[in-house]
Computed example of a mutant assay.
Amino acid sequence: MNRVNQVVKMHLRNKFTWFLVPWAILGANFLINAVIATSLNDGEVVNTGAIASIFIYTLITGTLTLKETFPFAIGLSIRRKDYFFGTALTVLLVNTISGLAITTLSAIEQATDGWYVRLHLFELGFLKDLPFIGIVGINIILLVNLYFIGFTISSLHRRFGSMSMYIFFTAALLIGTITSYTLTHFGLWVEIAHWLANNYMDLFWWMIPMVGVYMIISYGLLRKAAV
């Protein structure tokens, strides 16, 4: 446990990556859109997808963590197992804080009718009927899920090298192309959109076991990965 805590402390020393950059990006998006909403000043609702920036950043962070910290941790004689669980604990801690912050800002946004200028950046309309704790949970699940998708991809690269990335992304592109063609050919896009609109909560619940799947895969890859 001491080594796991050591890994957590190692990660949290890098406050720039874990905290400052994502919230600086989100803060800049908020200020820009607030200026736009204020300048309109005609009662028009300003909807923006800028909140997606912190989720995308979390995915990218997952792909970069190994490159920046794994060799250093192994050089300090930290076991791969301790590195992995220390990283997972850090991810849960950081994204719990982020999930709480996002949901709190969303509640403030809703209470002030969009910061008094009808600006909707943090609030997701299809979640507004859920209780506060439910929205917090969904935000945390989504952030952790995205992080471990990136972490798993990075673990694959660490284990098998650059060629694995060519194979992985080529396969992903091929599967995506075939799927898109099939859905277009049989006219299934509208049906899928309706299904998603009615069952999006089920997708969030499925993200919980998927995090476990990503963790198992990435841990298995890291056990034999080169430093």
Rank of each mutant, 00 (worst) to 15 (best):
G187L: 14
L105H: 01
M210T: 03
K67P: 00
I138Y: 10
E109P: 09
F151I: 03
A111W: 11
E68P: 00
L127R: 14
L76H: 00
N2L: 10
Y214S: 03
P22E: 10
T65S: 06
A111K: 06
G114N: 01
I149W: 01
F186Y: 15
T61P: 02
T96E: 06
A226T: 14
M207G: 06
S53A: 14
G114F: 06
S98D: 10
L76Q: 10
W195Y: 05
L143N: 01
A107R: 08
L121P: 00
S155F: 00
S155K: 01
A50N: 11
N33T: 12
Y200D: 15
N145V: 01
S39G: 13
W195E: 00
K128I: 12
L12A: 12
A73E: 00
T38H: 05
D82L: 00
N145P: 02
T65L: 11
S98V: 08
L173A: 08
D202W: 15
A193D: 12
Y116D: 11
F55A: 07
A172R: 00
Y181Q: 07
M210E: 10
V91D: 02
I217Q: 01
S218G: 05
D129Y: 07
A101V: 10
L221D: 02
G43K: 07
L174S: 12
Y214F: 13
G187H: 06
E109A: 05
T61K: 11
F160I: 03
Y166R: 09
G134E: 14
I102E: 08
V35W: 11
N47I: 04
T90V: 03
I138N: 02
N145T: 11
